[in-house]
Each structure stands twice: as structure tokens, then as C-alpha cells.
Nucleic acid binder design. Structure first.
Length: 517
RNA sequence: GCUCCGGUCGUCUAGCGGUUAGGACAUCGCCCUUUCACGGCGAAGGUCGCGGGUUCGAAUCCCGUCCGGAGUACCA
């Protein structure tokens, strides 16, 4: 049976990682089973509406590569419009609430806010169940209601929750969840301003849009009996509810900025690959049932099943994300990596992110990272690669082994592309003072700087010097050379790096090193 | 308070009545090696929240309990 799933965010802010996982599961299910994925905007609260939010959703979803079959950002659609405010304007909810009022499952309540507050205070003082259980209106005479309408008193429409009943909600992850209907207050379905509440609008739309599976956050589980009751009141078949557990920070608390980025686009800006992020996020709360972890998107889709979902909350482990990201980078060809780097540079948010970057994980005795400088190095590499693609690809091949994200290529490849790489003073002090330094540099200049050599030929050239000078180990040869050529004490294999650098760069850098002796 | 949900190495997880409780990240060690990484191999790390019960046998089933979380809005 084709699946119809929906991602229905409220346009109040950014798209964070928890929500990403929910859509990802929607998407994986739809890819696996076939069917449709619908984007619906739940903008029924005018006071919290954020006009930039919908754009954020669409942008983020575009970046991660989750496509929808229907939604407000697409033309038409069999169930358009896909914004609840527009659906409200069309009278969809009004006609549906009329049905419920007609069949006795909903009623108008004219209580003022003050009255409601007094009721709550009374309930608190007397330690009775808090909430609206009917007040004066649940069973009011038609004449009383008409009089109130005639007076022009504002009202809300509430669901008439049946009393003395057990309500059993089916949740795919947890099985049956039971509630006592006497603990459920009569929820508001239509607000005084005529807008539907989430409870009403979402259920009506899920039915009208023929949604088969409702994937949403665990926080909805306690209101699920009223959703179940709404379906029942209409006589509709409820969809399959899947309440996904929350994702929390390393300290077990709700994910917040303190734990690192929560905004999905910030992960993009930091050089995480969409494939690695999706792979990682899918694994929090889900597993294919075997030991597979690093998976391609195709494998993920193949392996995905709602039955692999876990009920307990999961922690977001940045270290594992970093590992998986590096692992993914290593599994790609240099061409693919370069394409990803270009793609990242083309994203507007990347630059903005780094310009406003504040390093929050500064270790003791370490200076905080400078976001602007990080971006500039990255940008320099991108621009360089456009005019020197072959060379840039060689650099990527050597550096993709030791990088954990795309942004790091900027720093890692810097020495390859600048004419005069910065020299590490301590390294210079240690290795340039070697007695054989001058002779070594002269040798490299004349041999390695004379022609394009392979890594093996480079090695042979250095070994020849080592042997001629009776030096026991290769280290004293390699280290000064590395410092002279890269300014650093770490990096790719020296012979590979020299081969990529080529004779011209080697000569220039050796000359500079000679001048420093 | 009330109502629900959850609880396997530090972390993500496998497990579905019989396993030396498996894998991955992180940690540590060894190997590779010119460095840093990568990679390979290995170690350490779990009284399966706790207590009862059912059973020849329980992480797995039942009850209780503790701890954590969510909801308790004319927000979603």
C-alpha cells in the first residue's frame, strides 16, 4: 500500500536536528514503500508566526535533499492549499466543526479568560484535577447558548470528551497506550478568533490529505488520546501514529546551543556532508537490526523499517558525527569531494555562519578559533581550485585522509596553494639547526627541483643523500625537508607531497629555507 | 500533584526465554610509518536502573519500586 506521510512544522523558528530526524524517517519510509511526502505548514497561531521560518524549512530540506511531492512551495497539488491559515480562510475547518457540533461531539463555550483563571485557581486550592471539564456550557440548553450568541459573547468550540471511558491509542513504537477519559479536559478545537487549534486542524488535515502514517515528536503522546477521539467523533479511520523519541544533548538535557549547533543549516556551514548527517541522525533511535552503521542513502532506504525504531530518547554524540563525516569524506573520490566543497561555498549561509562564529569550545590555554579566518582559508582554496583543478584534486587526495569536515580543507591545503606558507618557529628552530641542513637543501634543490618526479623518485633522491652522508635514519632528512616545504611538522607523506608540489614550488621554498639558515 | 512515556558498556545500539550479552564512536596499547592522520590488530569498559516473582533457565515474561523525561494553554 502506498504510504502518505507528512512533515507539518509550525513556522515559528529554525529547523533543528530533532525535526530533521522526523522528516528523514518520513522520507525514508516514502522512498522505501513508495507513496507521497507532504509538507504542510501549521500556521494557526498568528502571534508566534515567523515569516522567515517557512523559507528556512524549504532551504534546509533542499540542502539535505529531501524532496516533497506536495507542499506550499510547489505548484498546485491534490490537497492544496498546504498552509493551514489558507485552509482556514477557505472554510475547511468551519465546515468540519459544524459536523461535530451537529453530531454532539463539540460545543460552544463562552467562558471568559477570567472565569477560566478562577476555575483553575479553585482547582489548585482544592487539589482537584486541573482543566476544563465542561463548566457551564458542555451541557447547556440550546436557549442559553443562543442567548449568549445573540449577546455577541466571544466563544471557543470544545471537544466533548466522553466520560468514564478507557481510550486506547495505538502507537507503532510502543504498542497500545491507555488513558482514562476522565483525566482529559475538553480541549479547545476552534479558538475565539476562529482559528483551529493544532489538535483540530492537524487531525482534519491528516484525514483530508489521506495521511497513512503520522510521524511526530514524543511530546505529542500525551495529547494523542484527544486526537484519537477526534477521529472517532468523525467516524474516521485514524492513521498509524509513530511518536519518535526526543534527541537530547550529551548531558541528557534538551538539545540547545550549548551542545553545539541545533540548526541543521549550521551543520552544513561547518562542512558536514548531508549524506553523513542523514546517516548519523537516522541512527539515533533507529537501527537496521544488524551491525551496519556507515550506509549510503540507497542502503539506508533499503534497510529502513518503522519496526527498527526505538522508544527511548537518544543523545546527540558530536564525536561520532565527526567520525562518520570523516569516514564519508574518505569514501569519496577527490572529484566528488571537490564538488561538495564547491557546493558548500555556493551556499549563502556558509559565509554568514563563519562571520558570526563564536568559538564556544575553547580548551584551556588555547586561543579561540577565528571564524572569519577559517572561512577565508576555505574560500581561498575554492577560488584556487577553480583555476588549478588538477593540482587541487591532488591536494584533496592527500588531505582527505586526515580531515573530518569540508571546511578543514582550507587549512589543510593551505600550504599547497600559497607561495610562502607560514613557518612554525619551533619546528624551524629544531630542524634547520641540523648540521646537514644546508647540504640537504642544496641537494633537494638540485635534484628534486630539476624535474617532475614520482613519490618513489623523491624518496630515492632523499635516500641517496642519507646514504652519501652516512645518516642512520631517514627522520633527520625528512623532518627538515617537511618544515622547509610546508612550514609544519605534520601532514601527508613527504614524498607524495613533494611530488604534488612539483619542481617550481620546491625550488622557491628551498631557497626561502636556505635564506633562513 | 495528576496522566503518560522511557531505563543494555561513557555514548549510539544489537538482542524478542538458553549468547563467554554482539557491533560502532570515544579511551588506552601494539602494528604500519618520515610526522599528523588514515588503516589493521588488541585491551579495558556492562551487577542489562533496583527488588521480587514465573520458569530447569530471564536483559528478554509478570508485579512492585526508583530514577529520568514529556504533557498538564484559546502554543504547536
Amino acid at each position: 500500500m502506498p504510504v502518505r506521510v507528512r512533515f507539518a512544522p509550525s513556522p515559528t523558528g529554525l529547523l533543528h536536528v530533532g525535526a530533521l530526524r522526523t522528516v528523514l524517517y518520513d522520507y525514508l519510509l516514502r522512498q522505501k514503500e513508495g507513496g507521497s511526502c507532504i509538507l504542510r505548514i501549521e500556521d494557526t497561531d498568528r502571534s508566534r508566526y515567523n515569516p522567515d521560518s517557512e523559507h528556512e524549512f524549504v532551504e534546509t530540506l533542499r540542502w539535505v535533499g529531501i524532496e516533497f511531492d506536495e507542499g506550499p512551495h510547489l505548484e498546485g497539488g491534490p490537497h492544496a492549499p498546504y498552509r493551514q491559515s489558507e485552509r482556514q480562510a477557505l472554510g475547511i475547518y468551519a465546515s468540519k466543526i459544524a459536523e461535530l457540533e451537529a453530531n454532539g461531539h463539540a460545543y460552544k463555550a463562552f467562558d471568559t479568560t477570567e472565569e477560566i483563571e478562577q476555575m483553575r485557581e479553585f482547582q489548585q486550592i482544592n487539589k482537584v484535577q486541573i482543566g476544563y471539564y465542561g463548566g457551564d456550557w458542555r451541557d447547556a440548553d440550546a436557549s442559553k447558548v443562543e442567548a449568549a450568541i445573540a449577546e455577541g459573547k466571544p466563544y471557543v468550540i470544545r471537544l466533548k470528551v466522553p466520560r468514564d471511558r478507557k481510550i486506547v491509542v495505538q502507537d507503532l513504537i510502543r504498542g497500545r497506550v491507555e488513558f482514562d477519559s476522565n483525566t482529559l479536559p475538553d480541549p479547545v478545537l476552534i479558538k475565539a478568533d476562529g482559528m483551529p487549534t493544532y489538535h483540530f486542524a492537524a487531525m482534519v488535515d491528516d484525514h483530508l490529505m489521506e495521511i497513512t502514517h503520522v510521524l511526530r515528536g514524543e511530546e505529542w503522546i500525551s495529547t494523542s488520546p484527544i486526537h484519537w477521539l477526534i477521529f472517532e467523533a468523525f467516524g474516521w479511520e485514524p492513521p498509524i501514529f509513530v511518536h519518535c523519541p526526543v534527541i537530547v544533548g550529551a548531558d541528557g538535557k534538551k538539545l540547545s546551543k550549548r551542545h553545539g549547533a541545533t540548526r541543521v543549516l549550521d551543520y552544513m556551514a561547518q562542512g558536514y556532508l548531508k549524506s553523513a548527517l542523514k546517516n548519523f541522525i537516522a541512527l539515533i533511535g533507529w537501527s537496521p537490526g544488524d551491525d551496519r552503521e556507515a550506509m549510503s542513502e540507497q542502503e539506508l532506504i533499503q534497510a529502513f523499517s518503522l519496526s527498527g525504531l526505538q522508544p527511548s530518547p537518544g543523545k546527540f554524540d558530536m564525536e561520532k558525527l565527526k567520525w562518520l563525516n570523516g569516514h564519508t569524506i574518505r569514501s569519496m573520490t577527490a572529484e566528488q569531494v571537490l564538488a561538495e566543497i564547491e557546493g558548500l561555498y555556493a551556499e549563502e549561509h556558509t559565509k554568514g555562519f563563519w562571520e558570526n562564529f563564536v568559538d564556544e569550545e575553547v580548551l584551556p590555554n588555547q586561543t579561540p578559533r577565528d571564524g572569519k579566518a577559517i572561512f577565508e582559508r576555505f574560500e581561498k582554496f575554492v577560488l584556487f581550485a577553480r583555476t588549478n583543478q588538477e593540482y587541487a584534486l591532488e591536494c584533496i587526495k592527500l588531505e582527505q585522509e586526515r580531515v573530518t569536515n569540508l571546511i578543514e580543507f582550507g587549512e589543510a591545503c593551505e600550504f599547497f596553494i600559497v607561495e610562502e606558507p607560514a613557518m612554525d618557529p619551533k619546528a624551524v628552530e629544531k630542524w634547520f639547526s641540523q648540521p646537514h641542513a644546508r647540504a640537504l637543501f642544496d641537494h633537494i634543490r638540485s635534484v628534486c627541483g630539476a624535474a617532475v618526479l614520482t613519490p618513489d623518485e623523491m624518496k630515492a633522491a632523499l635516500v641517496a643523500f642519507q646514504e652519501a652522508n652516512g645518516i642512520e635514519k631517514l627522520g633527520p632528512i625528512v623532518h627538515p625537508t617537511r618544515v622547509a616545504l610546508t612550514g609544519k611538522t605534520f601532514g601527508p607523506g613527504l614524498f607524495e607531497l613533494m611530488s604534488v608540489l612539483g619542481p617550481d614550488r620546491i625550488v622557491k621554498r628551498i631557497d626561502r629555507a636556505l635564506a633562513m639558515l
